[in-house]
Design a protein around this nucleic acid. Structure first.
Lengths: 205, 205, 205, 205
DNA sequence: TATGAATGAGTTTTCATTCAT
DNA sequence: AATGAATGAAAACTCATTCAT
């Protein structure tokens, strides 16, 4: 039972994580999904799951955290490839669009309303991880803001909290658009992005 | 036993709804709560629940919708008692603060990320109700904006979508603050509200 | 609670019996029928049933016995109106035809395979009643046989048991026809009766 | 654990069937028996039953059909070992005697009054099976009759329906004797058989 | 090491019976 | 006397977890 080395995972563990993530992306409810379903989706036996994890709760929680880590890292990598304020901001919105069909998007979980707190109790044990992602995102936002300042887009004299809040609010507003697109037939995605950006500019000027 | 309290539910149904809402407000997970727990929290026998509802799913879904209706109506009533743009906006934030401990806050559900869609399948049948609340909130926002316009606070020439988005984004940003208060020790609630308002003013000027 | 006088029943008791009989004739299974269904079918409240009977088992058992008594008496009355062997025998078959749609026919219960024994345990207490009906039927058969003897139709020198057995067997055979009519498309009811009668005559000659 | 015993059922399914059959033979009512009782009688866990069958109804219905198949096949085999009309007929009566304590005898179900129709709804799906047994029995009767004809015991010129009816009626009459033995103290089983046979001979002469 | 058949604890659901009105 | 709302004991059924293979 060679559990894992540091923070890498065995093939079986990864298969199981991917099974869970798959199920959830296909609409399964993390509270109602069964171990049998996970086993089938992962292509492993039910017993095997218990070779690698102690309980169902642990499987699901760790799978979610694994996915979160991956998504956040991927998002950061993409955002950092953009070299100016506007491109970087739009890239963030772009990522949100791409993740829309994924009800289980980490962005949703991290940025918005704290519904995340409702997740498995178990995760409380892993709260430091979530906090780590949250502060990584914060530093990304800080660098974005610095870029905007250096480019002369941001000129306002206000606390860092205010500036971060503007970015976070605008992104939350954009997520709200994405989640309710069917109600805004006259606003296409490009338009919605442009208006988010406009708000940011005005609020930070 | 006066059969109907209002024109909709019997006393027993209301007792059961309140039992469910109580449980959830005390931290129960809507997917993991049991009928026995609901019965105990409602002060009725387990069998009684099945006299009034066909399944556990129906009980919980209807309780949530009932609560949503009540909360939305209460919030609207409070907001409408304020007669100027600023007071009305702050009143909305105030309501959010008061609802914070309520993991199950309708504001969270309605305004933000659409995690609401993940709720019990059953609710799909009641989607029109949720849509109705959403558009009531929208018209409240529209009236708020009109007020701001009449008071000369809002002067921007932009689409209604933009203006609504500013309000919604700022509220979502405020919810984010509330949900992460422990991370913003240097910002008290009053300050957070003021900064939200500042963003709104700047974005709508 | 004026229970009953001797062997007459109150209106309520009769209403309940008729409710039960109705349900069963409409295809309900006596083991699966619920007290609520009986109450609805009887047009009385569920509580009322427990004013007149101690348990569900008692209600159903007594209703069945009541029906049995009525059916047997009615059958005997009809049979005795016929004044010769052949008419009397045919009248018995006629009654069976008329009762066919009634899965719950007493004739089935009494004459045939003893499936009756499977009925409610409770009935064991009332076994004397069933025995009484059985021996009334036996004496009807005896009088029928006497008639046939006097008419010169029956001439065989054999035990009374044999003669009764011939009658009972032929009726059981006819019931088998009735219950499987769809398998005997070339045999109409009249023909089946005639062949039963033929067998009886030959066996008793 | 050799998966399939014959080409139809797993070992576990057979264990469950035998548990059900056992219970019924020991006097349990097929409508009132519980899954817990079946589990205990089968020597398997309650959950195991639901691994192999979808509902309690399915378990019981399939167990009954399984038993019916076995009993019919066994009876036919025994009957066919006899090489003349009389022995074959008596062998059939013998089988009935042996099955008497079995309230759940297939012979009762198939030959007689059609009470069988009252069994679980589920069986309607399997009606073709029951029809198949019924017609197998019919062809056994036909071969018996042919034997009697060839031996010169049967000489009557009548329809096949009549001849079959005589056999079926006599067997039904014998079942009636068996089920009411306590009322016929002066007739022992041998005597009852002989009289049945006598009736058959006379009716088919 | 990997498995899935087996299981029973714990869930949802039913319904005979009670009892306040 | 008549009722049906309320109930909990007992039923059907589910599924996380175990363990023999």
């Amino acid at each position: 039972m060679s559990k894992m080395e540091n923070n890498t995972y065995t093939d079986k563990e990864l298969a199981i994580f991917n099974g869970v993530i798959d199920l959830i992306k296909r609409g399964a409810n993390i509270y109602l999904v069964t171990v049998s379903e996970i086993a089938k989706a992962s292509g492993v036996g039910k017993g095997t799951i218990y070779e690698y994890f102690r309980t169902k709760e642990e499987v699901i929680s760790k799978a979610i955290l694994y996915n979160m880590k991956r998504e956040v890292e991927h998002a950061i990598e993409r955002v950092e490839q953009k070299n100016n304020f506007k491109d970087r901001y739009y890239e963030a919105l772009e990522i949100i669009v791409e993740n829309f069909d994924n009800k289980f998007s980490t962005i949703n979980l991290l940025l918005s309303t704290g519904n995340f707190n409702e997740l498995y109790e178990y995760m409380i044990d892993e709260k430091h991880l979530i906090a780590a992602y949250t502060s990584r995102i914060e530093s990304i936002i800080d660098r974005l803001l610095l870029m905007g300042y250096e480019e002369g887009i941001i000129t306002i004299e206000e606390s860092q909290y205010y500036k971060r809040m503007v970015i976070i609010s605008s992104i939350a507003g954009f997520i709200n658009y994405i989640n309710n697109r069917e109600r805004y037939l006259d606003i296409d995605t490009q338009k919605a992005m442009d208006l988010c950006y406009k708000m940011v500019i005005k609020a930070l000027k």
